[in-house]
Design a protein around this nucleic acid. Structure first.
Lengths: 130, 130
DNA sequence: CCTTGACCTTCCAAGCATGGGAAGCCCCAT
DNA sequence: ATGGGGCTTCCCATGCTTGGAAGGTCAAGG
């Protein structure tokens, strides 16, 4: 099948399918006319990538996950290790964002938000301290 | 003062100071020899930018915040509006990350993580659903 | 047979914010 | 005058995705 149908079936845009091929994630055969040719196996791999991206795995992680997935004799310990490391990264990021949101929200609560210029938010940003 | 000292005093790298100038955030006078020349006002603006970046404000928001900060007759309502919108964006991102971490952690908990190949994580990524 | 439109190909670029590095100029102390 | 450190500009890379331009390919219909 052509790239368009593979995109529709996998939920990965044609643009990204070409990109994943360029970075060596999913190889595609070629039809005589030069068009990329996909079978069910490739579509499944693309879907796998999409699901991994939905969990915000970076492409390098996905490369390893794909390798493990293809390897029927893999050790699930390896997969779990990757996954838990990623969970930690996600939680660290989420915490950082949550902290920023919290302190900014706190500042905003003390801002009148009217026509006058006084504003603790700007004062905080201005401050020399950290 | 030269860019190096402005960097040290503001906590913004010289690299980024030049970038902020290139995108029109903070203009710098020039010394006769072509070096950028900074005074306390510019250093304060750079510090302002750094603090805003510490709260993950995008540069476009910072551009507006800087404008409001310079405008002594601003309405704090405008600042508050910007801040709260950003808080929402931060919390949305944090929630998304937290959700991903949660579901991935859940999957990992059901993975034996031993030498055998069975792995619910890979099975989930493989799945056609969602 | 020829046109049209939908599909495919490649390459280039932007976006976000930051950092790394090269080539060359400027200034000061030795 | 020589060396070193700071300054200048310019290009490149990161990570992921999307956009467009210019052109080739194919099927349907006049």
């Amino acid at each position: 099948m052509n790239i368009g149908e593979a995109a529709a079936r996998s939920g990965v845009s044609a643009k990204m399918i070409r990109h994943y091929e360029a970075v060596g994630l999913v190889a595609a055969r070629r039809q005589p006319n030069g068009y990329r040719d996909y079978g069910p196996a490739e579509v499944a791999e693309l879907r796998f990538i999409r699901h991994a991206r939905d969990l915000a795995f970076p492409l390098e992680d996905i490369r390893r996950l794909l390798g493990l997935w293809r390897d029927k004799g893999r050790a699930s310990a390896e997969v779990k290790r990757l996954a838990l490391a990623h969970v930690q990264a996600l939680e660290a990021k989420a915490d950082a964002l949550q902290r920023m949101a919290g302190s900014l929200r706190h500042l905003a609560e003390h801002c009148q938000g009217d026509a006058r210029p006084e504003c603790p938010i700007l004062e905080q940003l201005e401050g020399t301290g950290r």
